[in-house]
Simulated scan of single mutants.
Amino acid sequence: MTPIHPFTTHAHARNTSRADGGRTPADRARRTLSQNFLADRQAVDLVIRAADPAGLVLEPGAGTGALTLALARAGAHVIAYEIDPRLARRLAVRTRGTAGIEVVRGDFTTARAPGRPFAVVGNIPYSATSRIVKWCLRAPSLTSATLLTQREYARKRAGGYGRWSRLTVLSWPWFHWRLGATVGRECFRPVPSIDSAILRIDRRPEPLVQDRRSYQELVELGFSGLGGSVRASLKTRHGGVDAALATAGVPRDAVVGYVHPDQWITLWQRLCR
């Protein structure tokens, strides 16, 4: 990770030739890095309200700095990560003299998590969404993540389709997932082909289960697909499954995706404790 100083120059960042089919380096970066910059003030305000930033905030994919500056104005100390050296340098120049902003050129997903409590807030590249979310879930001191993602991704992770993903269920005892406001595609430049939405992930003050390994093994078994239903999958290793399903309110023929994460907590309590 490289801290950016406003007067640092990069020869490749100054190259604006159109040698690649008429595309500039900026054009190629936007395509390669999934760069769609937030360009609407109301959308920025939506993200800030959802994040309610305070203290240390890490921002992946800072881009042109719309969120960076808004986070700092809200009182956060922002470490803004930008992998594109051209954008990182411009952001460092733009934020020079602004208190509470540090610009780092580099890949956020390879950064070391701070040892003290922090939040993550960002309009993240669609292509890096899974890696960024996994980084957040693994960071011991993370308190929350407020991420602007593809709307379909946010709905899938937060149960917006009435189904629950494996990742959400696996992390549910430690993190709460919530779907926030939709941000239309017209709020970005260049304009993407799909809408975005705010996804909020909060670390729970206290875990809902006491044994991570047994809980996650149970969930992995349920999502294994053995037998075609969660009941059939769990019966391959556990007794008393029918009684546990009844207590959790899960139909005997339920497909695993339709089992609510809270019901998985009950199943763990009945089958693994």
Rank of each mutant, 00 (worst) to 15 (best):
V103G: 01
I265A: 06
G21N: 10
P207S: 11
A72I: 09
T236E: 11
D84L: 06
G225C: 05
M1C: 12
S214M: 09
E59M: 11
A43I: 12
T110L: 14
H260Y: 04
A11H: 15
I201W: 02
A88Y: 01
R138V: 07
V121F: 03
R231C: 00
G75M: 12
L221V: 01
A248R: 02
R185F: 12
K235Q: 13
I79W: 02
W164N: 03
L170Y: 02
L137E: 14
G257C: 00
V121R: 01
T95G: 06
R178W: 06
Q150E: 07
A181P: 03
G249Q: 05
A246R: 11
R151A: 12
Q263C: 03
P117L: 14
V169H: 00
G97Y: 10
G21D: 10
G61S: 05
C187A: 15
V183A: 09
L267F: 02
R185Y: 13
S141E: 15
Q150F: 06
W135F: 14
V191A: 12
C187W: 02
T109H: 13
T266W: 06
T98F: 05
G115W: 04
K235G: 03
R28Y: 08
T64Q: 11
Y258I: 04
E59P: 08
I132H: 10
V104P: 00
V78T: 05
L170P: 00
A19K: 13
I4T: 10
L147K: 09
R213Y: 12
T266G: 00
A72F: 05
P173L: 09
A39Y: 07
L142E: 03
V219Y: 00
W172S: 02
T182W: 07
T98M: 06
F7D: 15
R116S: 05
L245D: 00
L33S: 08
R204F: 09
G22W: 14
P125F: 11
D52N: 12
L67F: 07
G239P: 00
G115Y: 03
A43D: 05
A111F: 07
L46I: 05
L226T: 07
P114Y: 14
S165K: 04
D84F: 07
E59R: 07
P251M: 06
G55I: 12
I194G: 01
R151L: 11
L71K: 06
Q210G: 10
D202M: 10
A232K: 05
L199V: 10
V104Y: 02
R273S: 05
F7A: 14
A111Q: 13
R23M: 14
A72V: 08
T129K: 13
V104L: 14
W172V: 02
H5K: 15
Q42A: 14
R112Q: 13
D202S: 13
L91S: 04
V250A: 01
H10F: 15
I265S: 04
V103Y: 01
D84W: 06
D242F: 07
L67R: 05
D195F: 13
T8A: 12
